[in-house]
Computed example of a mutant assay.
Amino acid sequence: MKPVIALTKGRLEKQFMEFLQERGYDVRPLLNKGRKLQVETDDFFAVFAKGIDVATYVEHGIADIGIVGEDILLECQPDVFDLLPLPFGKCRFAIAGDPTAVNPMRKQRIATKYPNITTKYFRERGKSVDILKLEGSVELAPLLGLADDIVDIVETGSTLKENGLVVKEEMFTLSARCIANRNSLKLKKAILSPLLDSFRIEEAVI
């Protein structure tokens, strides 16, 4: 029996491949998977999904562990065990907007893909704002007057700059996380421990 790992497709997927290679794993089956969504390696089975779906597969025990962005855990709060941070996927949450905009007389409007994170952040600071949930490019909202500012994940800041926006307030930093199904940690400890121990090599320096 091999562990089942759910991987977030895209940027985290590529960074996790490099992470595995550094630890001596043969990732050739993963790199050469083409359009396959399930791949078997010598050490584990891998499934590829969007971030929120990774958390769902882990929560329901389809996957034993998952590699997911910390934003998914904070926003959606899936019922999984948050095992440890990983040394990649680094980014930050920030409030951004038009630096020339005048402070509104009305309640501040914030556009974001992350209403739960945003609500919690402002509530903890005693601020009342109106939150507009968007699914696409939130940078458009202040440009068209839908919102005063946005709350979003920022990596390089290039998208903000290209659209004339600036970071107004740094909120907090994020990283990729290794999550686990609660039952798998108990029932499959023998097969999961070697894999998880190899992931923990960098834990002390994060």
Score class of each variant (00 low, 15 high):
E202D: 15
F19Q: 03
I67S: 06
F172Y: 12
C91Q: 09
L187T: 12
I150G: 10
E18G: 09
T118K: 13
Q21H: 03
M1P: 11
P115A: 02
P194N: 00
M1E: 12
T8Q: 13
F81G: 08
Y114R: 09
G66D: 05
N103G: 06
Q15V: 05
R92E: 14
P142M: 08
V138E: 09
G157V: 03
L187A: 13
I206R: 11
E22F: 04
S128D: 15
Q38F: 12
K186N: 10
A180K: 01
G34V: 02
G66W: 02
N183E: 12
L140K: 12
R92Y: 10
R200V: 00
T119G: 15
A94W: 01
I179L: 07
E139Q: 13
V54I: 05
L185M: 07
P104K: 11
V166N: 11
T8W: 04
I5G: 01
F122D: 00
T173I: 14
R92N: 13
D64E: 07
E139S: 09
E59N: 01
E203I: 01
L30I: 05
L30D: 02
Q108T: 14
K14D: 12
P99H: 09
E75M: 06
I201P: 02
P85V: 00
I131C: 02
E203S: 14
D42R: 02
I131H: 02
K2A: 01
K36D: 10
V68G: 01
L144M: 15
T56Q: 12
A176Y: 05
V102I: 15
A141Y: 08
Q38L: 13
C91F: 14
G10S: 09
L134F: 13
V129N: 00
F44T: 00
